[in-house]
Structure formats: C-alpha cells, structure tokens
Design a protein around this nucleic acid. Sequence first.
DNA 1: AAATTCGTGTGATATAGGTCACATTACCCG
DNA 2: CGGGTAATGTGACCTATATCACACGAATTT
Lengths: 190, 190
Amino acid sequence: MQVLRDHFEKIIPLSDAEFAYISSFFKQRKVMKKQFLLQEGDPVMHEYFVVKGCLKAYVVDSADKVHILSFALADWWTSDYQALYTHTPSSIFLEAVAPTEVYYIAQEDKERLCAEMHKVEHFWRKKNAMGYVGLQRRILSMLTHNAKDRYEQLLQQYPSLFQVVPKQDLAAFLGVSRETLSRLYSKKSG
Amino acid sequence: MQVLRDHFEKIIPLSDAEFAYISSFFKQRKVMKKQFLLQEGDPVMHEYFVVKGCLKAYVVDSADKVHILSFALADWWTSDYQALYTHTPSSIFLEAVAPTEVYYIAQEDKERLCAEMHKVEHFWRKKNAMGYVGLQRRILSMLTHNAKDRYEQLLQQYPSLFQVVPKQDLAAFLGVSRETLSRLYSKKSG
DNA sequence: AAATTCGTGTGATATAGGTCACATTACCCG
DNA sequence: CGGGTAATGTGACCTATATCACACGAATTT
C-alpha cells in the first residue's frame, strides 16, 4: 500500500501508526479488462483508488450510445459519487479498460475516518477541491473548443491515456462520434 | 449574517460563539447590475457567498464570444477557484447579473478556519463534494442531450434563473448560440 | 420623451459533426 | 496459427447548430 501512503502524503504527512490505521479500512481488488466494478442499478458502497490500469465511468443512453463521464488512471479516485452520497443505485458503469488494480474503501469508513482524523478530512477536502477545478476546466473546454482542439488538449494533458484507451472511448469522452474523431487526424491539419 | 449561519448549520451545528468566530472573517459587499467582482487578470483573493441577486462567471474567447462557466444565485459560493488555489491571476470575469449582495472571505482565512475548526473543514468538504457531483451532472447533460433538452433540464432545475438572467446568457451557459436558443421555443415542439 | 443601448426574433445561408454502411486492420483466444 | 471479435478508416449523405444581417420592442440613461 505504499502507493496509497505516498498519495496521502502528497497532502498530509502521516506517522506509521496513522497510516496503518487509515490503510486498515482499505481492501484490494484486481479486475481484468472489460470487467465491471459497478453496473447500472448496483448499490454503490465504495470509493476506488486506482493503483494501476485504467477505469472508465460511463452511461449508456436510450439509443445505446456510450457517454464517458471520466477515466481514472493510476493515482485517481473514482466511483459513482452521486449514488454514493445519496444512497441511490448506480446510474453508471465502472469498467476496466485495461487490467486494473484498485484499493477501495467503504463510504461509511471514509466518513468515519474523516470524523476521527481531521487530517484525513483535510486531505479529502483538498482532493475534492482539485477535482472540482478539473471539471470546471473540462466544461470550459467543451464550451470554448471544437472537437479537434479538445482532442489535442486531452492528448497534451494526459498523454498516457492514449496508450491504454481505444479511440472510440476517447471520442465518447470528448463528445464526438468515433468517425469524426478518426477524420480529425486523417484529413489532417494542425 | 443569519443567512450565512443558516447555510452553515444545514451541515454543521454551531454555537453562538463558534458562529461569531467564523463570521468575524467575512465581510459584506454590494454590487450593482453589471459591476464586476473579478475581471480577467485580477488577483483572486476571496471566495464569495451570494446572499441575494445573481453572479455570472464567464470567459471571453478570442472571437469575443462569451462562455458562461457558472451562475451563482442566493446561497451559492463562487470565485475563480483555479486562480484562488494556484495563486494565479483570474482567468474569468465575475459579474453581477442583477443587484447582488455577497459575503466574502479571504482564501487564507478560510484555510485558517479549516485548520482551526474541524467542523468547518467538514463543511467545506461536503460542499465541494456536492459541487463536484453537480458539475458531473452538467457534463453528462452536455454529452447526452441536445440544446433543447438541456434548456428544459435547466428550466426544471433552476426555475428562478429564468426570472433574472437574460436568454442570451442562458445560451452562453448551455453552449448554444442565442439565435438557436430563441428558435427552440418559437418553432416549438416538446 | 428622445436617444441609446440591450435583449430578442427571424430569415438566408454555411458548416461541423452525426449517421449509416461497409471495408480494413489489429487483437485475442482456443 | 487460424478464426472471430474488436477497433478503426472512409465514403455518401443528413441534420443540428452556427453565423451574419437586420428589424423591432423594452429598458435605461440623460
């Protein structure tokens, strides 16, 4: 669990005892490519920390089209947060894009840790704040840029995504059809 | 500052002394319609809590088009968070859409309050978590719905916006041109 | 109340991107 | 290694939305 400790310690310093306590609430799980951590309708109980691999969180609309809400690479947290916080069934699928290893914690244990250790609550406040800013940037990118520019931004910001995630998934994340995405760099320009 | 106290107490109960301490860090400010709390390039030092009125946060692109990142009605927090956290100049404009009254707190005072009072850190973790979920929903809405559906969702979710905000601003928030928005409910359908 | 400015509606036209259909290639897996 | 499935490329065509231009009425300002 050293990766997890390093991850926490980027924001809050921890003694061995403190980390031992925190980590006692986490479990490990490995999923193969195309396996699910969550499917639509499932109860959502955990938040997942990706150690290696990649998860995609997506919805499927009434026309069976996939829309990707987020990718989670190593060092990212993911879940269906809306469902987690409101105790409603999952409205998303959480699926491994590649062989993936996660640590996960039950929502109630996380709340308990936050209540018991101010530091830990601080950690998650900071994480949430960063996540919020990241989503704002994505919204701004959707409002201000066309498909090609968004694709290039993504490429710049997360080059490692492109080694793991099929282009059709990137298209479903950017909000364009896979055909259009394909044409962006055959027709060429830029 | 009763509204602010009520707002905090929706999440954390406070004694008079505690609230007195918290509120000692807040100041009040009133802005008229079309006045700015932030302009692009300004240093960003505060987070704003809207007591009444409405603020819009937006960017202006190279073609002078306005893209609205968020509206803040009564009981909402707003600022340029990215700039606030990274101590960089504002990249947005924060402008009153109607006569508006805010309480505001310096970022460093907020951090201090969070460090001193676990409760307060809890409050903001919860707020951030809710905000994160809200942005995810907006992204999903942009990915899965066309302009008309998004407009109707917005209408449903924030009916009060429509009494304060001109339609061209709603268009700039939804990511459509004002002309298209105008046509959505003249051509009719739905 | 005249003059500006602001918000809105609407026509004509342009375009980015979507959809459908099929071919091609890469990737698994037995 | 050979067959099947998954991912990608590409052509032809379609559609939602953008853009430009202008008119009109409501609000603000003086």
